[in-house]
Design a protein around this nucleic acid. Structure first.
Lengths: 235, 235
DNA sequence: ATTTTTTAATCAATCGTTTGATTGAAAATC
DNA sequence: GATTTTCAATCAAACGATTGATTAAAAAAT
């Protein structure tokens, strides 16, 4: 296989136990690691192969070169995020369109909780975040891939949840911007981790630190939802 | 000069009108542009020199190589941020320690306003943000440079402002985390601009869009301050 | 036996750096 | 004041090393 599989195709391919599947898994894992740390241009195919314990040529064979491996990484990331967000994404839009404000708010906070846990504790989250920060903003078509695959369907559902929780219209601009503000809070507190650790005097983010982070973001986002609810007439 | 000047030294050097000062300015400007777009590893010294209309050897001559030019860029950034944040930084700690809650909140919102305007409209902000996220946050010693030069003194003062505005103790962990949440909101809405433009259906961030962003962040941060003030006894 | 996968060796291109020559304007000498 | 010396600065050219890609043969899997 030389072209880029979709996230769903990729899931099946990587789940099989053929020798090629293992090589592909190892190469993607290794590429994710190196791309996230040294960036795409800063990573050599040799170091990727070495970490994966595979041959350099296997990158060309399985992914049609370095660029193809990068595309596979993007799809792999989309797959991973899709799994984590399945709680939100798996529900059809029609399922969440009639939630009560209280139910919607509970769902939002539940989702926030999952996102924080994933970004702060998942070993792969660091690689994924590093990878996205360094590479996604670079190529328009790769931004498109992630946007349509993950971001837009996720945001659509979160917007509906916010709309139900605050009484604001789903198409409201301030609602959309508020969601960016919300996501920004929990993403930044993860990707600025070196600064957070220094500032807080922490050695690492363990259970106690995770609880503190969840507590403050919980309060902040609840306050944001309250503010957005002002002037709206809940049923 | 082959070693890295401090931001203050750098300011004097770059302000002079000697031939070498112009070359250094051009090289830093060019490096900032390329580093911010294609990353450090993805940028060749040849492209830096070409954009700066300088010779390749001038990088080794003035900055002791590509890595030295990167360090100079970091100091230049520290200098720039220091200028933008001078409203907050120039005040001594003792000056803001006795502000009333209302005065402190006004100062906070004024600072937020400046940060949003800078990040959203300054032509150099995109390069600075891209450069810092892609390269700086992964090198411990460069994190140290920016942390001690800019981040810590800035955060110390913002923490005092937050303490005055909310009645929380200055050493409160939740206060420190809340400030990260606040900064995350306005930084993310800038660095995820490609996603923001797509999501909002905007072509660019002009005066109208800037006003919308300021409005929602204004409300969000005010709500956060209100939440933090709960249970505290303002004088 | 046929296909799939891995391997080592090699390719042209590009990387950051270094070199020695050259410039032009101060500094020193006469 | 004229000449010489000095030195920071720039330049084109070339360096060795490393890059991603390619090749053909060996090995493994089916």
């Amino acid at each position: 296989m030389t072209n880029s599989p979709t996230p769903n195709e990729l899931r099946e391919v990587l789940a099989s136990d053929t020798p090629s599947a293992k090589t592909k898994r190892d190469l993607i894992e290794s590429a994710l690691y190196h791309f996230g740390r040294e960036g795409y241009a800063g990573t050599s195919t040799r170091s990727i192969a070495q970490t994966a314990k595979a041959n350099i040529a296997s990158i060309a064979y399985h992914f049609d070169g370095k660029a193809g491996l990068k595309r596979a990484c993007i799809n792999f990331i989309a797959m991973s995020i899709g799994d984590v967000m399945s709680v939100v994404l798996n529900r059809k839009l029609s399922d969440i369109e009639h939630l009560s404000p209280e139910e919607a708010r509970t769902k939002i906070l539940e989702m926030i909780d999952r996102m924080i846990t994933f970004t702060q504790t998942n070993k792969r989250a660091e690689l994924v975040i590093g990878f996205m920060l360094k590479e996604v903003l670079h190529s328009p078509e790769e931004v498109d891939t992630l946007y349509h695959l993950i971001f837009e369907p996720l945001m659509d559902r979160v917007t509906v949840l916010f709309s139900r929780a605050t009484g604001q219209h789903v198409a409201s601009d301030e609602l959309k911007l508020a969601i960016f503000a919300m996501i920004g809070q929990l993403l930044y507190i993860r990707l600025a981790r070196p600064l957070v650790l220094k500032r807080m005097g922490w050695q690492a983010v363990g259970p106690d630190e995770l609880a503190q982070i969840k507590s403050i973001l919980h309060r902040s986002i609840n306050a944001l939802l309250d503010e957005l609810s002002k002037g709206s007439n809940h049923a």
